[in-house]
């Protein structure tokens, strides 16, 4: 850096300043644990899917400290977490790493920064819409929606491939086809909707989201 700069006008995002760390602390579930990471890398080494992650947990934590907000929130990495708890039980600093991963994914999703076509994200959305509508999971609808997530042709292919499993489940009364047509669910569905709306409102207010 040869040119003189002014303190009142620093470079657009000052890296390695705690701004993003503080945001994560305030807005991400269990986000206040991120600062306690001591960068040993046991989480990354323990993750059974570690090689599939662009940024394993240790790296995500460092990126948060380094102020790499966009890279973290747009990352597919935390969506790869399968909640196996390997990292949580091994972390010498006892960080709830798995919960932080889910917290980050959730926060990215709320901000609209999560990668649009991420399959985990899409399935999570299907699941949430399914359960939030009636208060109970409708398995027939969830499966069909999941199968046809990528269009009619791939849906038919998937359903065909899974036909033996489906028929088996039907025979043993593990799958209720009538449920596909009749919604069912809890009593007083509108009260569940009110509760969820209130929860959204409280969270949005606290985190400053619209």
């Amino acid at each position: 850096m040869n040119q003189t700069t002014s303190v009142s006008d620093p470079s657009p995002v000052e890296k390695y300043r705690n701004n993003f760390l503080k945001e994560v602390e305030a807005n991400v579930e269990e986000g206040d644990w991120v600062k306690m990471c001591m960068q040993c890398g046991v989480c990354s080494g323990s993750c059974p899917l570690g090689s599939a992650w662009a940024h394993p947990p240790q790296e995500l934590f460092m990126m948060i400290r380094a102020g790499q907000r966009e890279e973290v929130l747009r990352s597919e990495s935390m969506w790869m977490c399968t909640s196996c708890y390997s990292c949580v039980v091994r972390c010498p600093r006892e960080l709830p790493i798995m919960h932080i991963m889910h917290g980050l994914a959730n926060y990215a999703n709320r901000l609209g920064l999560a990668p649009k076509m991420n399959p985990t994200k899409r399935f999570a959305k299907l699941f949430w819409d399914n359960i939030a509508a009636t208060g109970r999971v409708n398995e027939s609808r969830l499966s069909i929606k999941l199968y046809f997530m990528n269009g009619l042709v791939s849906g038919i292919k998937t359903a065909f491939a899974m036909r033996k499993v489906g028929l088996g489940m039907l025979k043993t009364h593990r799958l209720n086809l009538i449920g596909f047509f009749r919604a069912g669910g809890i009593k007083e569905k509108n009260q569940l909707q009110q509760m969820l709306n209130k929860a959204y409102e409280i969270e949005d207010k606290r985190k400053g989201l619209s």
Binding site: M1, T4, T5, S6, V7, S8, Y16, N18, L21, K35, M38, Q39, M62, R65, A66
Partner: peptide
Amino acid sequence: GVVFTNGTVNKIEVNKIEVNK
């Protein structure tokens, strides 16, 4: 809230600030 960064410092540059707040 002390941040710990695993890294190696190579160089520290000193610049005069013309005017600050």
